[in-house]
Design a protein around this nucleic acid. Sequence first.
RNA 1: GGAGAGGUGGCCGAGUGGUCGAAGGCGCACGCUUGGAAAGCGUGUAGGCGGUUUUCCCGUCUCGUGGGUUCGAAUCCCAUCCUCUCCUCCA
Length: 430
Amino acid sequence: MHDIKWIRENPEAFEQAMLRRKLSGTGQKAIELDKSRRDHVAKLQELQTQRNDASKAIGKAKSQGDEVAAQAAIAKVADIKQTIKTGEEAERELTKALNDYLLELPNIMFDDVPDGADEDDNIEMHKVGTPKTFDFEAKQHFDIGEGLGLMDFEAAAKMSGSRFVVLKSELAQLERALANFMLDLHTLEYGREEVVVPLLVNENALYGTNQLPKFEADMFKTTDGKYLISTSEVSLTNLVRETTLNEADLPVRYTSYSNCFRSEAGSAGRDTRGMIRQHQFSKVEMVSVVHPDKSEAEQLLMLEAAELVLSRLGLAYRVVKLCTGDTGFGAKRTFDLEVWLPGQNMYREISSVSTCGDFQARRMSARFKPTDSQGAKKGAQFVHTLNGSGLAIGRTIVAILENYQTADGSVEIPKILQPYMGGKTLIKSK
RNA sequence: GGAGAGGUGGCCGAGUGGUCGAAGGCGCACGCUUGGAAAGCGUGUAGGCGGUUUUCCCGUCUCGUGGGUUCGAAUCCCAUCCUCUCCUCCA
């Protein structure tokens, strides 16, 4: 969420920033809403002052036993009452109108985010590894998985419908091995705190990480008004909701292995086969809560960690910087990691690392108290939040199947994962 | 799910309609005291919004949250969320 004061003081800059999001006139609209609210509040406060003065006079008169003066003051204030009541209602409405509007405005992107319409305009930053080729025709992951008899979409469809999968034996084990491998990397080498989070959250949490109000359709809602998280970014970031941290506590670095649930309402027809796009998938997530001066560096650190996961798995990938049209609602800048999939013969997104500035922190009131050079604490400021996948497990399984497939349909197990798979080196075709 | 209790400032805790944003204590900050420290003494110590304008001040709102009653609500009423205890259920 944006600081209305900042919009007020920098209307041109704000307009320019929103134009990059294909939105025009937003700043002006916000300022109008704010202006009518403030004008109203000023008037209302004037009335409240009158009422309060009169009420104090009543109290004073009563305590002195001067009933006549008290009655006079009561009469005087009686007609202000109704005006104030309607005025307070109007204030609530005006405040809500402004707030609702601000909640729907996307974050301001960094200047270095390239202009562009969609993913075709993303900028490739660098490539690592050589895309794998085979002297046989590379299969897609679902053919490999089904061929192994360890990936069952039909069984999943019977009980759950489309976009679910059942993994068995070594593939089920692979899921667990990947989670452990990734969590070890993030906790042992990057000092992240491992967290088990709620998968079901209330709507406030989702306003905080900006899934709401705009993207309700992407989520599953329970009958009692809760939502299944679409990413554990939601739960991890909300750990600092409504808190004021000490500056010395920063940075806070979390990681979590969790299931994620997406209704993917708008993606019918895309990636209908296989595990690329599922209603339920698992992911190891990174979330950092940092001092505003440190968020640039933190995003690079997160990116590095995600890259390390891929390179240790021996997977070729590239890093792209998302263009304006592809950058998410809450992000100031996003880097995607795309892994090479021989079966699809293309790079596919496997991780996304975003910095949100204070956009989410404002929404969930996550602040810290700065300490000056004398050690004295000054007023609270908003923290910066970042999130990144490290990595999406389902898609990592896809990548391993396609990159480590062999001519006879077996799949080699990447060296780094073998200790996590009981020393196994190969998932044998039956 | 049933019954009960409770949610007050950084913390503990008073306050059941009137000058209460709120006693007292703890903590913290500054000062005095001291060779230094402790103790002691003194002073100060919530946040949001708006105005003024900036290092001073004023107004307003905030005692879980949202409504209501009232000239006036931390105090009364309603709803709601959360916590605790007991029962039930259960992994």
